[in-house]
Structure formats: structure tokens, C-alpha cells
Design a protein around this nucleic acid. Structure first.
Lengths: 235, 235
DNA sequence: ACCTGAACACCGTTCAAGT
DNA sequence: ACCTGAACACCGTTCAAGT
């Protein structure tokens, strides 16, 4: 470990804002966001708690910073991709990122200071829609629907009491708590579908995603060739 | 908050688990979930911190309890409602509830112990779908899509840095931080649409909801009268 | 310039006691 | 039975100092 003074990646590296934020993500990923304290982070970085305040003004700034780093992990689509595959690519990447950092999802609620990567991501989504021909109003609709679904799915996936792919026994023990007959539809869905060998809740993601993309595509072509009665969507 | 009972709702009422949980919701609603501590809750209830432990084993149990109380606020649809208006009614009610208790949304992620109201809500949604004729697999798809959208929209609405309806000036100050030209599509959408007088982000909710309900209706009728080529949804 | 020890006002929770 | 004071091991953060 402490062989020479060279490039050991241990605690000899100078502290920096970037190293601090990446350390914070590492702590949150492995021990949960609840375990991320100034003291635990300092220990992770081989430094004393007070040193952190030299690179960051307070813990809030750390939370803002790691959320933006999470957004930066979302892959941008290929430059020449059509709007639909661009949206699809982004959604799948975003879900993967939020799956790797589930603690980030609830955090997004309280962060009022979006960072550059967050703004870039949103700008890029809206840009894809606008260039595809969505009007401003339709782009706002589509953006809201798309992002709500992606975040909501990630939130739900993270809150699943059972990881169906790896621990069906846990699901069964939860099922067993259902007062018999109290939740018949939930019981049916769980035992006859969710607990079946091949089922993986994650697979639901692409189904919903394609339903939404189908709908957006329909709206787009409807706008191109409006009907005589001028009506838009249902209701 | 303190004025629901007929007699003095002050500190003279005996402490109970229900009064404790409702006090916790009152604190979270007015001061934020971050301000909900055993000490602040005790003060709200006119009691000493240690008294709380007589009705609840720890703070985790309080969080589980208030999440379930939030779910219990979601209005069940009329018994004779058709599936579509039942789903619509529930979604709108759920969004209203989560809007009143925005702190509950991130909390749902970490709660692995769903309470009776939570289970009843989910059972009721799945039941509506099953009775409408959705197969188990389709009900799982529809359930995932529907719930993801509702939670995701609420999450996004809660995380909006600007409350467009009441404080457009805040939005403008945030806009001003955008490095000029750095986020052109975001800037366009914000200045030319979101900041316009009549705009309320909340109105996006019903648009996306109806898109989703339209899609589900299409899936349901397609399942009733399958096409010759057997294809399902796009791609 | 960067790092740190001691200290302060907070947490959740245990334990032994009060009525 | 229900409530509580004192205490413990934690927090985030300030401040004055070290190199």
C-alpha cells in the first residue's frame, strides 16, 4: 500500500471538490444516503471532517453536487438519432442510472438548485422534441409525461419490498402477511404473476415507455394532419 | 391542525398512536419533514420526547405510519364507476394528496413496510383493472404505468424550483442564471410558455393522465378483438 | 493554501426512575 | 399504565489555531 510516494490512490491524493463528491456517491451507493455524514465521508476520503468545508460550504452543496453528477451519467443519444429512438435511449439510460443510485430519486425532490448536467439533460430532451416538430405546448406536455414516467418508475422500482429477480422468498414472506382475503387482487397478481420464475419488474419499464412513445408519435402526426373537427386528444 | 376535536384540542388530550401520527403529519406539512424530530413532535403534542416511545417503538414506525395515513387520504372511486373514470378519479385524488404532503413522495422510496391503507389502495387499483377485463399480465403493465406516472408527476411537481402560479419572479431569477445560450430549448420553453400568465404546471397532469388512459383503453379493446397478425403494441 | 482539534447546539434512543 | 429526567453516542457546523 504505502510502497513509495508515487501515485497511490490511497489517502495521499490531494482533496478536491470532485474527489469529495465522488467519495460521497461511493458512500451513498454502498451504505445508503442515511449513512452519508460529514464524518463518514471524511473517513472514506482519509481526511478529517473539517477538511471537507474547505471544498464545500455545507452538506446541502454536497447533495446538490452529487445529484448533478448522477444526471451527468445519463447517456446522451447519438447525434443523428431520430426523436423516438433518442427519447427511448435516454429513458433507458436514465432508468439504469437511477437504478444504480436509488438514493438520488427522493433527493431530487428537495433540490431546488439544478446543476449544469441537470439543465443540459432537460435542455436536450426538450430540444429533441422541438426539432421533431412538437409545438412548444406539446413539447411541454410530452416532456412532463416522459419525465414523470421515468422518475416515477425508478421511484417505484426502488421502493419494491422485494427484488423479484434475486429474492422471491422475501416477497413470499411479505405475501404471507396479507390478512387472508383482505387484498384479493393484490394476492392474485403477486402469486400468479409477479412471483412466477421468469418475472422481473424491471421488464415493465419498456412496456410503459413504448406506450408513451406510441402516444407521442400519434400526437405528432395528428398535429401534422389535423382533423376537420379540430379536436385534439380525448376529453 | 389543532382544532379538529370539539373540546380543547390542546395538550390535555391523552396521547395515542393516532394523535401522535396526526401530529407528525402536521409538523411535516408546516415545517417540512426535516423538521420532524422526536423532540419537535413531542413539543407539538405538548408532551416530553420520551413519552412518544410509549406509543411507537421508534421513528421508523412513525414514518411508516404517516405514509400509510397519507395513502388513506386518497379517495376511493364510486362503486358503480366505470374503470376509466375510476382510474381517473383515483389519479386526481392521489395527486392532490401528494401535493398536500409533498414530503411523503421521497419517503415512499425507503419504506419497505406498506400499511393497510397502502395495500388497500393498490388492491383497489388492480381490482378495477381486472374487473374491466385486463388480463393479469396487462393489469400488471397498466398498474406499473399508471402508478409510475402519478408518483413521478407528483415528484416532479414537488421539485419544481418555481411555483409558477404564485411566484413567477422566482422562476425568472432562476432563468437569469442560465448561461446565455447554454440551454436554448429550456430557455425557450420557460420564457415563452411556462412563464406566461395563464400557465400552471399542474395542468399538465390531466393531459398525461388522459394520454395514458387512452392507451390503456386501446390495449383493452385490442385484446378483446385481436388483429389477424397478432401484433400487440408498437415495437 | 490547506488542514485540524475542541466545542456548541442539535439528533434518536436507553435506562432507571417517578406518578 | 403512562409519563419523564439524565445520559450516551451520534449529527452539522463555527472558530481559532496549526503547517
Amino acid at each position: 500500500m504505502a510502497a513509495n510516494g508515487g501515485a497511490d490512490a490511497e489517502k495521499r491524493v490531494r482533496l478536491s471538490r470532485d474527489r469529495l463528491l465522488r467519495g460521497a456517491i461511493a458512500v451513498a451507493d454502498t451504505a445508503g444516503i442515511g449513512s452519508l455524514t460529514m464524518r463518514s465521508l471524511a473517513q472514506e476520503l482519509g481526511v478529517k471532517p473539517m477538511s471537507l468545508y474547505h471544498h464545500v460550504t455545507n452538506k446541502e452543496e454536497i447533495l446538490d453536487g452529487i445529484i448533478d453528477l448522477v444526471f451527468s451519467e445519463i447517456e446522451p443519444p447519438a447525434a443523428d438519432a431520430d426523436w423516438r429512438s433518442a427519447m427511448r435511449h435516454r429513458a433507458i439510460s436514465a432508468r439504469g442510472v437511477l437504478g444504480r443510485h436509488p438514493w438520488a430519486i427522493p433527493l431530487m425532490e428537495s433540490r431546488a438548485n439544478p446543476g449544469p448536467a441537470t439543465l443540459r439533460y432537460h435542455d436536450s430532451v426538450i430540444g429533441t422534441l422541438r426539432r421533431a416538430g412538437f409545438s412548444i405546448g406539446m413539447a411541454a406536455h410530452a416532456f412532463s409525461l416522459f419525465d414523470s414516467y421515468v422518475y416515477g418508475f425508478a421511484l417505484q422500482e426502488a421502493s419494491l419490498p422485494f427484488d423479484t429477480a434475486t429474492a422471491p422468498d422475501v416477497a413470499e414472506s411479505i405475501m404471507a402477511q396479507f390478512p387472508t382475503g383482505g387484498y384479493p387482487y393484490l394476492a392474485e397478481l403477486t402469486t400468479e404473476h409477479v412471483l412466477q420464475p421468469g418475472y422481473d419488474y424491471g421488464d415493465e419499464f419498456e412496456f410503459g415507455l413504448d406506450v408513451i412513445l406510441d402516444s407521442l408519435e400519434r400526437l405528432l402526426t395528428m398535429a401534422d394532419a389535423p382533423r376537420i373537427d379540430g379536436s385534439r386528444s380525448g376529453r
